[in-house]
């Protein structure tokens, strides 16, 4: 009997009092279009393609992002420059499908694809939600300022032979007998 009163009346009264005190607490929400809310840098919003510090595209068209994407909203085609760099011939993200999960960012080996705190992407025409490479590519480096894939990777491109990357040993000469 006593426990029934405690559970039915007392605990409810305590709840009512605690909620009532919220009357004197500042509201958590902001008046959005007038006041911009603070967006955290790691917020997963609109997707961009970044460039390396030299101003070249970071994307090497490896297709890992397209594979990782759970809703298959990324489409791209690989192409190759004369100096051996890979790049996407086209890179297309359908933002009407994108769920901003960030898997593409995690899958990307070159930190090319990144999610930004921007979320204001409403369009009147659904076709306008499909963004091409020109729309996605930014001029900056995004979240990683010093990273340059071709400097650290063993891939041979024009101006950088095998073994010339950062922290990379000379390639082993398999025809030599010397240690």
């Amino acid at each position: 009997m006593f426990s029934l009163i405690r559970d039915t009346l007392l605990s409810q009264a305590v709840t009512l009092w605690r909620v009532f005190r919220k009357l004197f607490v500042k509201a958590d929400t902001v008046q959005y279009p007038d006041e911009q809310p603070y967006m955290f840098p790691r917020w997963r919003g609109r997707i961009i393609l970044s460039r390396d510090p030299d101003g070249e595209e970071r994307c090497v068209a490896c297709n890992l992002c397209a594979v990782a994407c759970p809703v298959d909203c990324i489409a791209l085609q690989k192409a190759e420059t004369e100096d051996g760099r890979w790049y996407p011939e086209f890179f297309r993200i359908n933002f009407s499908r994108c769920i901003m999960c960030g898997f593409c960012e995690e899958a990307c080996p070159t930190n090319a694809i990144q999610l930004t705190p921007d979320f204001e992407m409403a369009e009147y025409v659904r076709q306008d939600m499909v963004w091409e490479k020109e729309d996605l590519l930014i001029d900056g480096t995004g979240k990683y300022h010093d990273y340059n894939f071709y400097r650290v990777a063993g891939k041979r491109v024009a101006g950088k032979d095998k073994g010339e990357a950062l922290n990379e040993a000379e390639p082993v000469d398999v025809r030599s007998l010397l240690p």
Binding site: V19, A27, T29
Partner: peptide, 8 residues
């Protein structure tokens, strides 16, 4: 309800 739920 807004006030009590820390909304506007």
């Amino acid at each position: 309800l807004g006030f009590w739920q820390e909304r506007l």
